[in-house]
């Protein structure tokens, strides 16, 4: 038995702990199954599924930056049929809830994926990618209050399963977007996706990535993600899943204190295949060290901490 209670609820899903992979950093679980026990995860979030297979972008697809990665994978995936035939049977072997990340070129494609996977018993919920910088339409849906409300309403009408809306970081009004999703029946918000960026090879005098632009992830974006989670927590009552540069237990605790009910580990999976169980153990150790018995008590606590900030030093 755990000495501390790490379980959390998101919508209708009960998670034994708050740790799950960020979509796209964990495949469909198979690649990591020899290195970690998938049953130790709070949930399994799949790589994106689009209606038809997507080949992905032309390489180079990933560049290392200072404390960050820039990627333009381009949502390479096997499509609905490939997911059902090749990935669902594997996922049957494990117990954590499965949340499928959904992507499409337009509203009809999002609906197509959700309608096709709604009857699949092993699929417990959907994470709607409203924000991938590698799909132009995703950004259009995700950057206006009307756009977020519209797609949430349409998807809510076709599934009773959990609906998580993954929001884009590149907006001035995250709280309003979050409220729009909540108002149309979203079960949770996921924040943030990668931040659009690029890098240029000065010698070759051209962009490094084959697709020119990509998404920035990793430790360098943690501060951006934390602020976004903080603003959402002030705006909505539904759970928030925090993601962005989480590499250790303290990072995860910071997101919980900012208002996240659960957290996703992304880029860290590429660096350390055991990052998720490691983060989980570190959260547990942190709670024990601080005399806490229940992670849920910490959700949003930083909003309520009294007093002024103390001076800090560089170290």
């Amino acid at each position: 038995m755990n000495r501390v209670d790490l379980s959390v609820s998101i919508g209708n899903l009960h998670l034994s702990n708050p740790i799950m992979p960020a979509s796209g950093t964990f495949g469909y679980g198979q690649e990591y199954a020899g290195l970690i026990d998938l049953n130790d995860l709070g949930a399994i979030v799949s790589k994106a599924v689009s209606p038809l297979p997507r080949p992905g972008n032309h390489p180079p697809r990933m560049v290392e930056l200072k404390g960050a990665l820039l990627n333009s994978i381009g949502l390479q995936n096997p499509g609905i049929d490939g997911f059902i035939e090749k990935k669902v049977p594997f996922l049957q072997e494990f117990s954590p809830p499965v949340v499928v990340n959904v992507v499409g070129n337009d509203l009809q494609e999002y609906l197509q994926v959700v309608e096709a996977l709604d009857p699949v018993q092993r699929v417990n919920g959907f994470e709607i990618n409203l924000s991938c910088p590698n799909v132009q339409k995703g950004l259009e849906f995700g950057t206006t209050v009307e756009g977020v409300a519209h797609i949430t309403r349409e998807l809510r009408a076709v599934t009773q399963k959990d609906l998580w809306m993954k929001l884009t970081p590149t907006v001035p009004n995250p709280g309003e977007l979050g409220k729009a999703a909540e108002g149309e029946g979203a079960d949770a918000l996921v924040a943030i996706n990668t931040i659009g960026g690029m890098t240029i090879d000065a010698e070759a005098r051209r962009p490094v990535l084959g697709a020119k632009f990509g998404g920035v992830s990793g430790p360098a974006i943690k501060a951006v993600a934390l602020k976004y989670v903080w603003l959402l927590y002030e705006a909505v009552s539904i759970p928030i899943v925090g993601v962005g540069g989480i590499f250790n237990g303290t990072d995860a605790i910071e997101f919980v204190l900012a208002g996240a009910t659960a957290i996703q580990v992304g880029t860290a999976n590429f660096v350390n295949p055991t990052a998720m169980p490691d983060v989980l153990h570190e959260i547990e150790a942190w709670l024990e060290q601080h005399g806490e018995s229940n992670l849920r008590d910490l959700i949003g606590q930083a909003h309520r901490t009294q007093g002024v900030a103390t001076p800090i030093q560089n170290h």
Binding site: G27, M62, P273
Partner: peptide
């Protein structure tokens, strides 16, 4: 990236 076949960077 990962070396495990998950990130699809090294194609």
């Amino acid at each position: 990236g990962c070396g495990l076949g998950a990130c699809l960077a090294c194609v």
